[in-house]
């Protein structure tokens, strides 16, 4: 009677957790939109990780929107294991992450190309131009792309050419792209 939306379901899940600590019931639908931010506690991050990594768990399949703007603290996901995390979330439609907190960028993009076949929206903060031999150029079919390059002293400007990873990606997105946001590049496409 009282469940009228995801917020109500969350209250229900929390109640289940409180009343039956050893028999936690959390509907998978609660994992559809996940946001980890600097305000997220270590416990919240660890809880999410444990939920989708548990043996036989289908929670990862329910994740459609995932945003992670955490700092370097917290789960190993933030620094390591991203490719594995992507494997556990095969139905992602939207991904929003800060790159410096991940494992090697090429490995991450390779997994994204192979596994996230339903991805429609990709937001990357602090993309490092020096890592531009990444498989980003092999992505296809995105509707929304937003990239913020890591700039400032010690970081080179990004040259957007037909041969660059982003250039190849943009050419792949020619028939699907609806929204594009780029910051700090030299356009030479």
């Amino acid at each position: 009677l009282f469940v009228q939306g995801s917020r109500s379901l969350l209250a229900l899940a929390l109640t289940c957790r409180t009343l039956r600590r050893r028999d936690i019931i959390i509907p998978d639908v609660l994992f559809a939109r996940v946001t980890l931010s600097r305000r997220s506690s270590r416990a919240q991050v660890a809880s999410f990780e444990a939920s989708i990594e548990a043996e036989g768990s289908t929670a990862g399949n329910a994740v459609l929107y995932f945003k992670n703007s955490c700092g370097t603290w917290g789960s190993r996901w933030i620094g390591l294991g991203w490719s594995h995390a992507l494997q556990r979330m095969p139905n992602l439609r939207s991904l929003d992450v800060r790159l410096p907190y991940m494992e090697s960028t090429p490995h991450f993009f390779r997994q994204l190309v192979i596994g996230a076949t339903n991805l429609q929206s990709l937001t990357l903060a602090n993309y490092e131009p020096a890592c531009d031999d990444s498989p980003l150029g092999d992505l296809g079919g995105l509707r929304r792309l937003s990239i913020d390059f890591l700039g400032g002293p010690g970081h080179s400007e990004y040259f957007l050419t037909r041969d660059s990873a982003l250039g190849r990606a943009l050419l792949n997105f020619r028939d699907t792209l609806k929204e594009l946001s780029l910051d700090s590049i030299r356009w030479n496409l």
Binding site: S146, G151, L170, F173, R174, D175, T176, L177, K178, E179, L180, S181, L182, D183, S184, I185, R186, W187, N188
Partner: peptide
């Protein structure tokens, strides 16, 4: 990119 309806470019040189 004929379907782009929203474009945001910042600090872009040509």
């Amino acid at each position: 990119w004929p379907h782009v309806t929203k474009l945001h470019l910042k600090n872009v040189s040509i």
